[in-house]
Lab assay of single mutants.
Amino acid sequence: QVATSTVRILGMTCQSCVKSIEDRISNLKGIISMKVSLEQGSATVKYVPSVVCLQQVCHQIGDMGFEASIAE
């Protein structure tokens, strides 16, 4: 089973930030795809909930120095 959710990301300033986040999160087990939008300050994450949760994704992004939260 696959889920798609949006994560809000604060602190991104350039495409390099976007690429860094996409590269790191895409390597997590259970992540199918991730598309980060600098303009919208968010990311669309396609993932397998039984393998990885959005809290883990937000935590990983937080470790990179950005502020991440699950969009309502």
Rank of each mutant, 00 (worst) to 15 (best):
F66Y: 12
S37Q: 07
L10W: 14
E22F: 08
E72C: 08
P49A: 07
R24I: 08
I9T: 00
K46T: 15
Q1F: 05
H59L: 14
Q15I: 11
F66Q: 03
E72S: 12
G41L: 08
V2C: 15
L38V: 04
Y47V: 02
T6G: 05
A3T: 13
F66D: 02
G41E: 15
L28E: 03
V36S: 00
I25C: 05
I31C: 04
V52R: 00
M12E: 04
D23Q: 13
L10V: 13
G30W: 06
I9N: 02
Q40G: 11
L38P: 04
S16G: 09
F66K: 04
L54W: 06
C14W: 01
S16Q: 13
V36Y: 00
T6R: 12
V51M: 14
I21M: 02
V7P: 00
A3E: 13
V18D: 01
M34A: 08
C17V: 06
V36K: 00
L28P: 01
V51I: 13
K19P: 01
F66V: 03
Q15P: 09
Q40L: 13
Q1E: 15
L38N: 00
M64A: 05
T13H: 14
S69G: 06
A43M: 08
I32R: 00
M12I: 06
G30S: 04
T13L: 11
A43Q: 03
I9V: 05
E72K: 09
D63E: 14
I70W: 08
G62T: 14
A43H: 02
I32G: 00
H59P: 02
Q15D: 10
I9Y: 00
I70T: 08
S33R: 06
E67C: 07
P49Q: 06
R24V: 09
I61D: 02
V51Q: 10
S20Q: 14
I9W: 03
K46Y: 10
S37C: 09
G11Y: 05
V45S: 01
R8M: 12
I61W: 05
G41V: 04
T4D: 04
I61T: 04
A3C: 15
E39R: 08
I21V: 05
K46W: 15
L54I: 14
E67T: 11
Q40V: 07
N27Y: 07
G62V: 15
M64C: 03
E39D: 12
E67P: 08
G62E: 14
K19C: 05
I32W: 04
L54V: 07
G65Q: 04
C53Q: 10
T13A: 06
R24L: 07
K29R: 12
K46A: 15
I32M: 06
S26D: 03
G41W: 06
I31N: 00
V51Y: 07
K35F: 07
I32N: 00
E67W: 09
I21P: 02
